[in-house]
Design a protein around this nucleic acid. Structure first.
Length: 109
RNA sequence: CGAGUGAGCUGAGCAGCCGCGUGCGCACGCGCACGAGGAAAGUCCGAGCUCCACAGGGCAGGAUAACGGCUAACGGCCGCCGGGGGUGACCCCAGGGAAAGUGCAACAGAGAUAUACCGCCGCUUUAUGCGGUAAGGGUGGAAAGGCGAGGUAAGAGCUCACCGGCACGCUGGAGACAGCGCGGCCCUGCAAACCCUAUCCGGAGCAACGCCGAUAAAAGCGAUACAUUGGCCCGAUGUGCUUUGACGGGCGGCUUGAGCCAUGCGGCAACGCACGGCCUAGAUAGAUGGUUGCUCACGACAGAACUCGGCUUACAGGCUCACUCAACCG
RNA sequence: GAACCAUUAGCUCAGCUGGCAGAGCAUUUGACUUUUAAUCAAAGGGCCCGGGGUUCGAAUCCCCGAUGGUUCA
């Protein structure tokens, strides 16, 4: 399976925060905006509030794992996931339910 | 069995499926191998490596501090000396110089590095004054070595014995130092106050640095100038330098190294030597996760970013070895 | 990766050539006023970020940490 493209520049994150549509949950926040590439680009934000490097890395892994089943269904969208503190105690299956609900609400899939 | 001291180890395991990073093979479907820590952390020290004069002279500044060793080096480690704590196993110590100089010692106290308040003694005009003295009182963290005897008007290292300290000599030791003898009679504490002595330190850091591509334009400053160059001066070398604009650049550096394991030898030890075996992360928005089943003591602190040697800090629980004390039983 | 700063009363800060820990605002009480505000007077409130050390004595000097913040590449 080919990996998705990643968002890297701070500029791109800021445009999503500013212009993208969003869904909020105690575990994570999802921002979505249409791009012109035809393939999805994904960024993950894990802030200092979550804890040390161990906690932040774990949040990134859980989000990646939870998003993986939905990757093939998403078209040309930029997506940013922002991890929140509730995610530290969650399993990836629970996170996948949250992400699926968010993506359906935002009419991406 | 109880209380404790020191040293070391471990840091859930196994199996199936899906997924991630790197390397190799490839029939481009995929397959195989490897894949975080004892602290990866804090960045407190020391080095390697790269660039700058292969690194120069002086001042300033910083670090260290008994002695001997180990090491690439160290502020680390080992041994030992001295001091302190503990019944003990054992633990702790920035532990050079106060006789080079300067400074500080509040309050109390007469007096804080020099003195005489109460006293004691002698003389006298007997209210008192003058002189001698520092044993006793009182203050203080500290009061001119301590204690006893002789001595004296009263006293005093004034004299003597013992103890402490200092200087000198001898012996032992690699040395710090220890022991003994002898001399003289004497020195407050603080250098983690300034300082002095000895030793060491050029600067920056992998976002260093090298190669390749793209862009290759504008403005300003200047040869008594500017840069290398850092806190300053000298010396040396070079001829540009600064600002703005323009890159979502690529590759190397990037993991075989003062490496790890086992055995033997030397050494009290730290460590060294010989021989044999092993290859053990290398990402570049940043790789170890999810799920199912089983077992148990139900899983702490915590995630590599150029690499090593230490130090320090965080850490649920479990295990091993050596030793000490106390008590009981035999 | 590297360099530096701060932590003191509820809040903002002094004190850092070692010797009883202070100011302003805030709080409480009293006075003034019909009442409140303002003003005046008084009071309470501190393990000086934590742990060691030097010293007779440490907020101050030294070492090791914790937390927060700043700067450079």
């Amino acid at each position: 399976m080919a990996t998705w493209l990643t968002l890297r520049e701070n500029k791109e994150f800021r445009t999503l925060y500013y212009r993208g549509r969003s869904q909020v949950h105690p575990a994570l926040v999802t921002y979505v905006r249409k791009n012109k590439l035809g393939v999805p680009r994904v960024g993950i934000t894990t802030g200092k509030k979550l804890g040390g490097a161990v906690q932040r890395s774990r949040c990134r892994r859980v989000i990646r794992e939870a998003f993986r089943p939905y990757f093939s269904q998403v078209g040309g969208y930029d997506i940013v996931f922002v991890a929140r503190t509730r995610l530290l105690t969650m399993k990836s299956t629970q996170a996948a339910e949250v992400i699926g609900h968010h993506l359906r609400q935002l009419e991406v899939i």
